[in-house]
Each structure stands twice: as C-alpha cells, then as structure tokens.
C-alpha cells in the first residue's frame, strides 16, 4: 500500500514540477515579448541573431533538406512502383517536404545548432556575472539578450524553411530524374500541379512557431543556468532536448489544427 502511495506521490510531484516549469517558461516568454513594443530596441543584437540563425544555419539546413527530399523520392518509388503509381511520387515529395520535412527537419537542425549555442552563450554570461553587469549598466538583460533572439528566431526559421522546401523538392527531382529515369518536364509539371499555397503557408507558420520555441528554450535554460561549466552544460542539453520535444509536440498539434479534416 505504501509503495503505491509513494508512486502516486512521486507522480504528483513530477506533474506539479512540470506545470510549475511550464508556468515559468510562459512568464519568461511573455516578459520577453512585452519588450518587443517597448523601446529602447537593440537592432544590432537583432541583426547579429538574424545572421547567426538565418545565414549560418543555411548549409546544415540545405544539406538536410536536399538529402531528405532524395530519400523520400527513393522510398516512395520502392513502395509505389509495386502498384505502378510512380506518377504520384512528385506529389508525395512536395507534400511531405512543404508540410512536414521542411519545417521539422530545419527546426531540429536549428535546435541542435542555434538553441545549444544560444543556451551556452547566455549561460556563460550568467555564470560569469555578465548578466548582472548588464543590469548595473542600466540595461535590461531580457530586453538586450532575450527579446532580439526570440524575434530573430521567429523571423529566420520561415526563411530557412522556404530554402529547405525548394532544396527538398530539388533533392526529390534529382533522384527521380538522374537515378530513376523520370522525365524532367513531367516531374516538374507534376510538382507544380501538386503544389498548394496552403501547404507552404502552414509550413512557414509552423516554422515561425518552431523558431520562437527553439530560441525561447535556448534563452530560458541559458538565463537560468547555475553552477559554472557543469551548469552551463546541463542548460545546453536541457535547451536542445526541450526544444526538440516541444517542436514535435507542436508539430502534431498544428497539423491537427490545419489538416485534420
């Protein structure tokens, strides 16, 4: 009996901790967002974050999208060829890339690259008193460090996903035409026929939300890191894990909202 009670008590504590954590993150995000409309604005920090997230993530996102598009084409061919439905491959590739693979893979890549770096940078600033120094120099750390990064993440990820969409389709096209001997013109025509503005738009909306979540996790865990190098390492891991889980959870929720009918 005591064992069952202990288990239930432990479960309850875990749920309460999770709810408490969710509340803290929500409050942190709300405070950071409130600074979007309140001057002063740190345009240089915003520009730096845009370049860091949007430009320097391009190679990793581009390569991931290119190969993922190719893999989808190959796997679809393996399945569809049995039913002589190869014509559907172009449609499958563009649907998969614009709705799911583009936003999710770009998001996961950015979470690993930028979320971790952001958490480590802000975490190091925390444990070396740089964040306290900002306060003593009449600068609000949330406004200076967090808000520009959240805005940059929200703006940069749709751009990266647009690139990922194009390169994912190109990957599928390359595999189909160069390896599977599809007609290039027929593939392009099928791709254009299957392209839906709604799919691309929803993918970009997802990307913006993912960008916000990734940078929110990076900033939150970095901002609250404690205990020197070990604490910064733990914060970095927590930021990437939390961002990845949140990203996949929100992907399901958004897919359900936009495409469930």
């Amino acid at each position: 009996m005591n064992g069952i009670l202990d288990f239930v008590a432990g479960l309850g504590r875990a749920v309460l901790d999770m709810v408490r954590m969710a509340g803290k993150v929500a409050l942190f995000g709300a405070v950071a967002l409130s600074h979007v409309v309140r001057p002063p604005f740190y345009w240089r920090t915003l520009w730096g974050s845009l370049v860091e997230i949007g430009y320097f993530s391009l190679p990793v996102v581009a390569l991931t999208a290119l190969f993922s598009g190719g893999v989808i084409a190959l796997q679809s061919y393996t399945g569809f060829a049995q039913y002589h439905a190869q014509n559907a491959i172009a449609g499958i590739v563009i649907l998969a890339v614009t709705r799911e693979l583009g936003p999710v893979l770009a998001g996961l890549m950015v979470a690993g690259r930028v979320g971790a770096a952001m958490s480590a940078e802000i975490g190091t600033m925390r444990v070396t008193d740089q964040i306290d120094a900002l306060t003593t120099l009449s600068t609000n750390p949330m406004k200076y460090l967090v808000t520009p990064r959240l805005v940059a993440g929200t703006l940069a990820l749709p751009f990266l996903v647009l690139v990922a969409d194009i390169l994912g389709v190109l990957g599928g096209f390359t595999v189909c035409v160069m390896k599977l001997d599809f007609s290039a013109s027929a593939y392009i025509a099928a791709t254009i026929a299957s392209l839906k503005v709604m799919d691309v738009t929803v993918g970009l909306v997802k990307a913006a939300i993912f960008g916000f979540l990734i940078t929110l996790m990076g900033c939150y865990h970095g901002y609250h890191s404690r205990g020197g190098a070990e604490g910064v390492g733990a914060a970095t891991t927590a930021a990437v894990v939390a961002a990845s889980i949140l990203l996949l959870t929100f992907d399901y929720l958004l897919t359900d909202v936009f495409f469930s009918q």
Binding site: E121, T124, M125, T128, D129, Q130, D132, A133, T135, T136, S138
Partner: peptide, 20 residues
C-alpha cells in the same frame, strides 16, 4: 530604480566583460 542605477558603477570580481 533606473536613475539610481545610472549613478552607480560596479567592478565585478572577474571583470565580467562582455565577450561578444
């Protein structure tokens, strides 16, 4: 507090210079 903070200077133990 802002006007008071503007009148204060602080030297941190490790300098706390901004790396970036």
């Amino acid at each position: 507090r802002e006007p008071y903070m503007a009148r204060i200077g602080m030297l941190f133990q490790n300098g706390a210079l901004f790396d970036s």
